[in-house]
Amino acid sequence: MPEPMSAPAALPLWWVVVLPFLLVAVAAAVVAADASLTARARGARADVLLPVREAGRLLVGQRRRTVAADSVLWRAGGAVLPVAAVLAGVVLPLGLRPVADLSVGVVWFNAMEVLAWAAVWMVGWGPNSALGLVGGYRFVAQGLAYELPHMFAIITAALGAESLRPTDIVAAQRGLWFVVIMPVAFVVYLISATAMAFWGPFDAPVGRDVAGGAAAELSGVDRLVFAGGRRLLLVVAVALAVPLFLGGGAGPWLPAWLWVAVKTAVLLALVLLVRRRFPTIRADRFTEVAWIVLVPLTIVQALVVALLVLNRGGAG
């Protein structure tokens, strides 16, 4: 066991209210940045109001029904997505302290991501639409392929810190950021985090080739909640890489929360740029890579870290 921390407990309770707004603001910034990149490629003007416009458009839009839809699962799935993203976000240390300092924080985080995974299937299944269902199935098929490397990458960081608590993991990186001793886990984490949020190039479940896939039949508020939930999930999943691998709020001169913001912004920018460099990776091709390359790589990485931990006399 690592020595007891200088107790960076949870943030005050009112942060529970602030957190969703904070995440939504970051997600809106992601949307705006992404759209301005798109506009540049097309040679059109960028529009900073774009997230507001889109949200407004969907708020006044009509909600659709389809024939023989499974409305219960359809609406529930859409609602679960953003809720799961925010619940996953409570363990993120914003600066030094998270909203909830759970002792099993990273496992909680992963469980919430998996809830979102189920939610996408429900949204694809619900409207009784073939293209939606294909989108949902793509995510289910890929989900396991994403989830295993994801889990191993998270566990590697937890192993390095000998704790499942995100604040302990941050504290364990005071000397050396984990990205140095576990680069493979870091890269795999970023890849699979993007994939868990089905963000490009892993956006096959909502791909253009199936007319929006799982989201094909959503309109109005339902679409806003789904699309927003997806962005929230991306932000939260990428943001956890900071405490896991990049030392959390550690850094000179600036306060911890600003360092977290800067590091998260850099990672998000990286994810947005990477999306532009690659076409959508189809489910069957990525599954092969995930099982044959990523899973063994992350296991070897975990083994190496385990040996390092044993070597420095950890684990009692």
Binding site: L37, T38, A41, R42, G43, G200, P201, D203, A204, G207, R208, D209, R276, R277, F278, P279, T280
Partner: peptide
């Protein structure tokens, strides 16, 4: 083709 392949960026350039 690039649009179907899900590669929006060069697809937009080709359109322009």
């Amino acid at each position: 083709f690039l649009g179907v392949a899900g590669w929006a960026d060069p697809a937009a350039r080709a359109r322009r």
